[in-house]
Amino acid sequence: MSGFLESLMGRLRVRVWLCVLMLIANFFLVYGAIQFFNHGKSSVMYTLGLTGSIILALVLAFPNTEAVTAPEMQDPNLRD
């Protein structure tokens, strides 16, 4: 999972793209909840948002276990 999360998709890591997806899932969750509970509309968007948010949280929680950047490439502000 770490390899997948740290792989590049375009210029960004998959972890970053999944954060964007999380924002969208959270939007579905809140908007869907308002539509379902306050306006009596379908619960599909709410269910999708809630399920998506939970799955994404469980995926994004996987830590980064990839090999550490070579010392000469490391940020000089990093302390060991």
Partner: peptide, 16 residues
């Protein structure tokens, strides 16, 4: 790992 090197978060529950 660019920012934190080997000190990235290591535990699943902490990240959660």
């Amino acid at each position: 790992s660019r920012a934190m090197g080997k000190h990235v978060v290591k535990h699943y529950l902490v990240n959660l």
